[in-house]
Structures are given as structure tokens and as C-alpha cells.
Design a protein around this nucleic acid. Structure first.
Lengths: 191, 191
DNA sequence: ACCAGGGTATACCGATCTGTATAGTCACTG
DNA sequence: CAGTGACTATACAGATCGGTATACCCTGGT
């Protein structure tokens, strides 16, 4: 990826997230990247492709960020799950006041055959899988259920964070997740 | 509201929800409503105003729908909360496969001073208030906490429904909400 | 008989949209 | 030194954007 292409993707990421995908034109992206429109089309071919690479890079960055945080956190499924919420809070707090970019992009992309659609649903499926895998270590018999509950809490917290429904929703979700997990562990140990 | 204005609002509601606000032009709205653009601007004055009235009407319809369902449901805070999830499932199932229109609109409206912003955050604050009021009847000491947890579960379920993250997320959230409430009631009764 | 209100039909405005074309600059590399 | 890849600059195409203007039609109420 050439330096110009990198700057294009960075500018597009910032503008798409702050103003919305349809509200940002390619002329503005090129200007903000200090690049001509020809360069943009030489590197990406279409605006849709810029959108796809914006989302794909954001997804990759998030997974790397999360993996690092999980590696630093204490082992064990309960600590790992709370570490996911801690990572989300850090991620959203530093540069994502408008909520989850995947959720926001999904609102603007109606066509399910759009290549960006797979990136969006892919991340959500991956998060569900992550929570379910950790849940399996807590309660093998009810892993699916616990994984889904954690996913809902997490998703709701991201939206509530973006909408400022109440203060620190991710911290609240983290606490609620803890209660959920200790509850599941206790009932799982019973006959 | 004149018949033409009604048709405009109905057409705009369908198009905005299905394709996104920025992706739909006033020409298309007028054509789908069987109305000229002049009528649209005579009645609403601007596209922004059409957006506001679309969201305001949706908000009002949802509150009426929910009020009717709550009145029909069994009394008592636990039954009322589960009735909220049942109402959401019915509401989303019949004509809202793309998730919450307020969340989707929020993704497209960056300016917090946009009049639609108040409608969106207003509904979310109202839902939080509703859950918190019901939570207060279950556990007066932890009503805020329970109300917020129910809000997160509900919000997450709406998003997961729109993204098809897993089957029947609203039904799952309903079940999880029940566990949460019985748990809160038991711990609330303890010294 | 009148006239206001809700509407149609059509044309237009300037701006912006995605995308393309032409021509030229610069740095690196075989 | 020739060639290539990444880039700039500028202009343009065709469509669509939100919004306005002019002129006319029809119905209901007083």
C-alpha cells in the first residue's frame, strides 16, 4: 500500500466515522488526504472499495488491540471476559465517541451483497464466537446462552456509549457481565 | 396534516428506513408518494423537517404500541418488563428487519444540534426511564443499576436483531431479563 | 359567485455527486 | 539513460442533490 493510499484510507476513516459514509464525497477525502482524485481511483477503483478497506482495517486494528489486551490480562475465562469490556472501554474512550463503526456503517449499507456487509457481520460473528468460547470454559452446558447474553450486553453498551444514554455504559456492562458469569459458574456446579 | 403530507411521511419513512436517510433524495420521496416536490416543500419546508417528522411519528407510534401492550399484559413489574421485550419482538418482527430506526438515524446525523437528535436521544432516555421505573418496584435500592442493565440488554437485542448476529436475540434478552429480575428480587429481600 | 387551499406539471437553479480523461512531474531502478 | 510507478493538476462528463419559480387545476365553504 503506497503512502498516498494510506493517507486516503486514514482520511476516509476519520471522515466516514465522524460524518457518515454517504455524507462524505470522494473529493473531500482526496483533499483531506492531500491527494488528487485520480490517485484515489488509481489505488481503490471506487468509493465502495474505500469503504470496504476502511472497515476491514478498523476490524483488523480492533482485533489486534483486543488480542494484545487479552494477552496482558490475567488468564481464566472470567478475567478474559472482563478484559474484553475493559478493552472496549479503552478503545471507545480514546477516539470513538459515536459508537461502533460497524453498527453505524450497517445503518447506511442496505444492500446485503455489498462487500462491506461481510466485514460488518463478520466482526459481529467473531465477537459472538469469542464470548461463546470463553463462556464454554465457565459453563460448558450453557455456553451458547452465556455467550449470547455477554454479546447482547456488550453490543448494548457500545450503542449506549455512542448515544450517551447514561454515564459509562461499558463499565456498567462489565460489572453486569461479572455477575452473570459468577451466577453461571455457581449454577453450573450444581447437579 | 393533509392527505398529501401523510403520503409523503409514509413514503419517506419506508425509504429512509430501508435505504438510509442520506441515500434517499426528495425527488424519490415525492415520486413514491405520488406528489410533486412543490407539495413536499409547501408542507415540510425542508428535507430535514421530513426527517424529524419521520422519526417523531415513529417514536409516537412505538410508545402507543408499547402502552397498549403493557396495558394488556399482566400487572406487576416483572411481567411488565417481559411485556416490553415481547412488544419489541412483535414490533421488530413485523416490519423492522434492519434494527432500531433511532440507532440507524443516529449513525447518519453527526450534528448534535440537528432537531432530529433530540427525538432520538429522547426516545432512548424515555426507555431508560421506563425500565428504571419498573426496576424500582422490584428493587428500590438498586433500581438504577437494574434499569440500566435492562436497557443494555434491550438495546443490544435490537442491534443483534438488525444484524442477524444470532437467531431471536430479543427472545433471548427477554429470558435473560427475567433471570436478572428474579435475581435482583432475591438479593433485595436479603439483609 | 368568489376565492383560498391543496394540489399538479414542468422547468429551472447552483452545487455536489461518482467517475474519467489528458498531460505532465518526480524519483527510483535496471 | 530509458523506463516505470506514484503522483499532481486540471478539466470534464452525466447524473443527482436540495430547493425555488411559474402557471394552472380543482374542490369546498361562505
Amino acid at each position: 500500500m503506497t503512502p498516498g493510499a494510506l493517507r486516503i484510507r486514514e482520511a476516509a476513516a476519520r471522515l466516514f466515522y465522524e460524518r457518515g459514509i454517504h455524507a462524505v464525497g470522494v473529493d473531500l477525502i482526496a483533499a483531506e488526504a492531500g491527494v488528487t482524485k485520480k490517485t484515489l481511483y488509481d489505488r481503490f477503483g471506487s468509493k465502495d472499495q474505500v469503504v470496504v478497506e476502511y472497515l476491514a482495517e478498523r476490524d483488523e486494528r480492533w482485533r489486534d488491540f483486543l488480542a494484545r489486551r487479552l494477552a496482558e490480562a490475567e488468564p481464566g475465562p472470567v478475567h478474559q471476559v472482563t478484559a474484553v469490556f475493559d478493552a472496549s472501554k479503552a478503545w471507545m474512550g480514546e477516539s470513538s465517541p459515536k459508537g461502533c463503526s460497524m453498527v453505524n456503517a450497517h445503518a447506511e449499507i442496505s444492500d446485503p451483497s455489498h462487500p462491506a456487509h461481510a466485514v460488518i457481520t463478520g466482526q459481529k460473528a467473531w465477537m459472538l464466537g469469542l464470548f461463546t468460547d470463553l463462556a464454554r470454559e465457565i459453563t460448558p452446558t450453557a455456553a451458547t446462552q452465556l455467550g449470547r447474553s455477554l454479546t447482547l450486553l456488550h453490543e448494548g453498551a457500545l450503542v449506549a456509549h455512542g448515544m450517551k444514554t447514561f454515564p459509562d455504559p461499558i463499565g456498567h456492562a462489565r460489572h453486569q457481565a461479572q455477575l452473570l458469569m459468577t451466577g453461571a459458574r455457581n449454577t453450573a456446579g450444581k447437579p
